[in-house]
Design a protein around this nucleic acid. Structure first.
Lengths: 229, 229
DNA sequence: TAATACTGAGAACAGTGATCGCAGTATTGA
DNA sequence: TCAATACTGCGATCACTGTTCTCAGTATTA
């Protein structure tokens, strides 16, 4: 009765009996990613994907068993955009930081990645990524158990900084930007420190280039974790 | 024509003319939080909230103008659960770390917080929280512009560690736990390092208590940011 | 008292993910 | 060679979602 919750990756793409499918998971994924790049995750509905492929919604369920499968496929596909062929220096901190930088670029290119519900299942490309990250950590003497956690932490920093960079990009800068948020109102009296922090126009010094902050942060966290027990 | 995108906080809860409303935003919020605590964010549908309040879905729109408003209200309400009355030591790192720890507890108590789409609008309780965090940073000589960013970073660490703690909690431990994920399969040959990392049973040393890792990480990041330029 | 501005809520709409069942087609085994 | 088998495509449809329309009822204001 109770079918085990199998991921897309463990189900075969097609059977061996019937007529050849007219489409492929890869095509579904590509169409979905296009839609998401253009209109966000909300634009990735079964009907929209189907329309873009010139078919009906029901047909998609021959390739995937739920919309979530599609999201997993999308995430894994763009993970494949991370270049893993760049040579490694041998310095774990340096190599992981570089990898994180490339991962962040992918997030900036596909902002919908941040809207995915709780980290998607890791697929083949995700496996390659993980293996690569572990290889960067190989020169260290870290206990096996904590290596995956460190990578998870770095990935978290990636999403964290990607998020702030994206919302900064979408915020029309200049000191006179429209502060529609509640932050603007009723600040002076009950929240003097917030008022002071907001008064300082953004774009000053340390606040300017979040990417260098990102690099610095990742290196700092990594050196701390890699060198100490 | 184009109504400015006003948040819930800037709209009055009720007009002054008609009959007194039979319910309040607070009641809607409480009902929604109950539903979310029980069945996740997906359980918070207009109909479910309405049913719990003994009314129809349409009536809810007298109190909020969209479901997103409800999510904002929920987030702000549970932000209010963070205790801001604990005395501060005067050490910025220590005080912010303590605050972060209390914020993490709230995330563990309300896991749906992690599923909220892109950080909700900051409401009154969020303002108090922010002000409190800024007060902790007051003894430092940090430029105004970067203070908010540091707090954002700490909040990011909170969600990051809350996420890993939650999914560890939901993973039945023991070495023989069912690895339904793709991680288990086809690992040995093409991904030897992943295999090695997985072979080491979790629950060893550094991997054990993520909370101490969290505390250490927050302190490390903060000391690095607070002391340096 | 009349005008006004509100509240409650049933009905309905467009859009969502997903399922069922059936016609058509390629592969298999006898 | 030829049924049996296992698949594909997909129209129709279901349950559910957020949201709006509309209108009767009610409290406040002038």
């Amino acid at each position: 009765m109770a079918e085990g919750p199998t991921s897309v990756w463990s189900r075969p793409e097609r059977g061996a009996r019937g007529p050849a499918p007219e489409r492929s998971r890869e095509q579904l994924t590509a169409a979905a990613i296009e839609l998401a790049d253009e209109g966000g995750l909300a634009a990735v509905s079964m009907r929209q994907v189907a329309r873009r492929l010139g078919t009906g919604p029901a047909s998609l369920y021959r390739y995937i068993s739920a919309r979530d499968d599609l999201l997993d496929l999308m995430a894994d596909a763009v993970t494949g955009e991370i270049d893993l062929d760049a040579p490694m220096s041998g310095d774990p901190v340096e190599d992981l930081a570089a990898l994180a930088g490339r991962a962040k670029e992918v997030h900036l290119r596909h902002p919908w990645l941040l809207d995915l519900p709780t980290e998607p299942t890791v697929g083949p490309r995700g496996m390659d990524y993980l293996e690569h990250a572990l290889r960067a950590l190989e020169p260290t003497s870290l206990p096996q158990a904590s290596r995956l956690e460190i990578i998870g932490l770095v990935n978290g920093l990636v999403t964290l900084f990607a998020r702030t960079e994206l919302q900064r990009r979408n915020t029309p800068d200049g000191p006179g930007r429209a502060r529609t948020s509640y932050l603007a109102t009723a600040t002076e009296e009950r929240h003097p420190l917030i008022a002071a922090a907001l008064a300082a126009s953004p774009g000053t010094e340390a606040s300017q280039d979040t990417h260098v902050l990102f690099e610095r942060m990742v290196r700092r966290v990594l050196t701390g974790l890699v060198e100490l027990p």
